Computed example of a mutant assay.
Amino acid sequence: MPHNGTPATDAGNTPTIKTTPSILTPQVNINALTPAETEETVEKAGIGKTQLSGGKAFVSAMFAGAFIGFGALFFLIVTSDPAMTWGPKRFVGGLAFCMGLVLVLCCGAELFTGNSLMASDIAARKISWGALAKNWVIVWFGNLAGALLLVTLIAFAGTMGLNDGAVGDTAVATAASKITPDWITLFFRGILCNILVCLAVRIGFSARSVGDKVLGILLPIAGFVAMGFEHCVANMFFLPVGLVSKTLGFGAQAAGAEAVTVQGILYNLSAATLGNIVGGAIFVALAYWFVNARREPAKSDAK
């Protein structure tokens, strides 16, 4: 620029303006992960789960047991409204229960039913059977400990007495409805339950934001609850809180209340747990691994 402050000109007296290269802004992808990308994310998460120490895995599992318990308690409170008809009550109760898995996926916790997806790591030979079994055992008992801790807290809080004791009555009736069916029926309900739960967890893995996670899991989780399927971790809360409520004098008129015992709880959990493993590990984890896992291309013999 000349000393007089006028812009520099070329031979044709046309002003020349110097520009700096524009800075490229990063592109943000808001689309959900593809099924193949989700499979990679699921398998990576499974490897991470086996690397947790036993203590951290157990405490994280306690969080999940309590989180699912909060969702179950929300379900009991909502469905204790006698003015609601059966269908809307199941749907609204299912939506209320979703709070549990929202807390698990968004806050981070080890959930036994969701960890059924680790079976894909076995198929991909990324973890050992021993590591899988160790994680499942620690997480199952951690979920149980968290659920029982929550049951203890709400028993002292008098929560079962809400709505003139209707919540306690509903807790006993709900527990009885989960114990009185035959074992095979409970087993197949467990299969169906964890198909939907693990699909919801995969949706959570595919999401790119908290809002995506929450919205994506609502219908699968509300659906399994409304359909009456059996979730072993939810039952770690539903059944003990039903037994405690019965002990406190609630639910005396509930059909099948006499079946709500420690033996009845173990009867349900055995069927629901095995059914959940089959539903999550075989029908979701291994099936999606078969469809989406990357495989090394065959080496050519040509020289």
Rank of each mutant, 00 (worst) to 15 (best):
G46R: 10
V92C: 08
A72W: 07
T113V: 10
I68M: 11
V102H: 13
A133I: 14
K126V: 00
I138D: 04
A109F: 08
L76Q: 07
N143T: 08
A109I: 09
L149Q: 02
A57C: 06
G55P: 05
F112I: 02
S120E: 03
G54K: 03
I138S: 04
A157Q: 11
F91A: 14
N143L: 05
G65C: 08
M62E: 04
A57R: 10
I47L: 14
F156L: 15
L52T: 03
A133E: 00
V42R: 12
G54C: 04
I127K: 07
V78L: 03
M62W: 04
C98H: 09
V137M: 11
M99A: 11
K89M: 15
L76P: 03
M99I: 15
L101I: 15
L132E: 00
T152R: 02
K56D: 13
A57H: 07
V151Q: 09
G55N: 05
V42N: 05
L105M: 14
F141Q: 09
A57P: 07
G71L: 05
L105Y: 04
S53G: 14
I77W: 06
Q51A: 13
T50V: 15
G54D: 08
S60Y: 05
S60N: 10
L144V: 14
A123I: 02
S60K: 08
N143D: 05
I77D: 03
G94Y: 06
F97L: 02
S53D: 11
G108D: 01
A66M: 15
I154P: 08
K134V: 02
T50P: 06
A64C: 09
L111F: 10
A57N: 12
A124E: 13
A64I: 06
L132W: 15
I154W: 09
M118E: 00
A83Q: 11
A66G: 12
E110L: 04
V42C: 04
A45D: 09
M62C: 14
L73C: 01
V151T: 13
C106A: 12
M118I: 02
C107D: 07
L95K: 00
I77T: 13
R90P: 00
L132Q: 02
W136F: 06
T79N: 01
G46L: 10
S60G: 13
G100W: 08
G46Q: 09
A157K: 07
K134T: 10
M118H: 01
I138W: 02
A124D: 15
A61T: 01
F75K: 12
P88I: 11
F91M: 13
P88G: 11
L76I: 06
L76E: 07
D81H: 00
Q51M: 13
I122S: 01
A61D: 01
G114N: 13
F58G: 05
F156G: 14
F70P: 04
V78Y: 00
W129H: 08
W140K: 11
A147Q: 10
G69M: 01
I138N: 05
A83F: 03
G71C: 05
A131D: 14
A155R: 11
I68Y: 07
L148F: 13
L105V: 11
Q51R: 14
G158W: 07
L153A: 15
F91P: 01
S120F: 05
D81F: 00
L144K: 04
K134F: 00
V139F: 03
L95V: 15
F91L: 15
A123L: 13
A124L: 12
I127E: 06
I122R: 04
M99V: 14
W129A: 12
A157S: 13
N115H: 10
